[in-house]
Design a protein around this nucleic acid. Structure first.
Lengths: 123, 123
DNA sequence: TATTTGCGTAACCGAATGATTACATATATA
DNA sequence: TATATATGTAATCATTCGGTTACGCAAATA
């Protein structure tokens, strides 16, 4: 499963742009959380953070470039809306290990159960 | 939900160590995939990649530091095993948006269904 | 029309990242 | 015991990242 691409910006920098890299930053995760409740303008998003508006602007651009945030311009305002389906690749990647951790938890529970049974036998 | 911590290494560098940052790197995702099937030594992991062994060693250290990979030393060999339950925080974070993308897909399906119904009426 | 507002972008900066090579060290083997 | 092997780590480097300030420009408003 290929989950990432490389893009080149105007200054010849190579950047990875994929969902995993997008959600790696805690600020961006907070932005996603914000716009998942409301459709907010860039400024409204920026107001919620301590860091500068241009910094938020950049984060939003990254989220937009990998499709997690959709932007609709209305006059001079840009409304940010979540596009949740673009989180699916990341979800699926992690989900493939779900059975593994469920097995481990299960066997741990079994271990605890056996322990309890043993203790009861000793009472 | 706090999903990350900052640690300081011996050279006074500050690094984020959390699951999201761990799985942000495609090489580390590939390592996770590898050791989810087999328990492999560090060298066996390194053999599967083009990059140098020390580079892989570092990646494994990062995965180990955030608990995704467990290491058991046997003689001079270090066996790497997946510890899948430490993927759960990332899984849960993404999963909270599942209902959103399911709603959107659902409404898209509804839209398609309505379209088909309309077409049938026109036949 | 002049001013304010919303927001992108350029230039810059320090720190983090990911790689490399060279080396150290403990364990296995001849 | 001498050598080979498995692996971590230090030093170093180029690149990327995430932030800042300064500025530009189009749209709204006075």
């Amino acid at each position: 499963m290929i989950t990432y691409i490389y893009v080149t910006d105007q200054l010849h920098n190579k950047m990875r742009r994929d969902v995993f890299q997008a959600i790696a930053d805690p600020v961006r995760r907070d932005i996603i959380e914000l716009v998942s409740n409301d459709t907010l303008t860039v400024n409204e998003v920026a107001e919620k953070f301590e860091i500068s508006r241009p910094a938020i602007s950049k984060h939003i651009r990254i989220l937009n470039e990998c499709g997690i945030i959709e932007i609709s311009q209305k006059g001079r305002e840009r409304y940010c809306q979540i596009q949740p389906k673009n989180l699916i690749p990341a979800f699926l990647w992690i989900e493939q290990y779900k059975s593994l951790w469920e097995d481990k938890i299960d066997s741990f529970e079994n271990y605890l159960m056996k322990l309890q049974t043993k203790n009861k036998e000793n009472e």
